[in-house]
Nucleic acid binder design. Structure first.
Lengths: 135, 135
DNA sequence: AATTTGTTATTGCAAAATACAATAACAAAT
DNA sequence: ATTTGTTATTGTATTTTGCAATAACAAATT
């Protein structure tokens, strides 16, 4: 961890995930059941392999993710959220809601519509589901 | 607006404010009553002038901020939030709450404590206050 | 009128982050 | 043995950011 810019919690948070990629990896794990390097790599936003490696290591070092050997395939790793990582859920949901509200080209799909109609319920439900999977 | 990476609302949002600075400017306007270039510049995180200019222009072009000549000082500009910008409030609050929860060096001050004890009330109250100031 | 001060913006250059392509390491599967 | 799949590294070009200096210009001061 580098030297902090300030003690502001917003600033500290942005030093960790204030970039264009980190929260997309979190999204993939949280909302799309992705768990591995190759699955993250396959996402539509086309992250480069070196950046993906870098972000996964960073998120792991911040204890937002945990990396383990896959029980199904010993030559594969799987990433899971810690409680700290799972607690990013409300942030992700709020960003998703704002983005859908202000972007014509981001039509709300099922989850987006449920967020629009009852955000707290969605957060509660997803949070419970995550609880079963955190490390 | 460049070419979008995808239609995901999270990705679209991060293309706008997914960096280490934009949300700090929003924070300064939302929570610290700052309105001008020199006030943003004075924040503890020490943003560079060229980056500040760049972010202000970007946020203005995204219609998150509006720039006007100050009524008090004609050689000064003041920035205010649009409704789109004010709607970032829940994101800012959630990031603040997460940062305070997971960072020893970010002691909760008054606002932080109120967020911890009743987040929806804080958001509602601040959102009402912002409503009176949006352009 | 000339000078100083305050505010916003620009420029030049170094450093860091990102994009993109190629390929390496290595275990599993064939 | 060879091929395939998964993760990681390397090299190079481009873009973004950090930092310092300074410009433009109006208001305030002398």
């Amino acid at each position: 961890m580098e030297n902090k810019r300030s003690d502001c919690p917003i600033s500290c948070s942005l030093e960790i995930f204030g970039d264009k990629w980190s929260l997309l990896i979190i999204r993939d794990i949280m909302l799309r059941e992705k768990v591995s390097f190759s699955e993250f790599l396959a996402s539509e936003e086309k992250i480069a392999t070196n950046i993906l490696v870098n972000r996964l290591n960073l998120l792991e070092s911040e204890k937002i993710l945990v990396k383990e050997v896959s029980p199904l395939n010993k030559s594969k790793f799987v990433y899971s959220l810690t409680q700290k990582g799972a607690d990013l859920l409300p942030i992700v949901i709020e960003i998703m809601d704002w983005g859908a509200k202000y972007n014509k080209n981001c039509p709300r799909k099922e989850l987006g519509k449920r967020i629009k109609s009852d955000k707290p319920a969605v957060i509660k439900e997803l949070s419970l589901a995550l609880k079963k999977k955190i490390k």
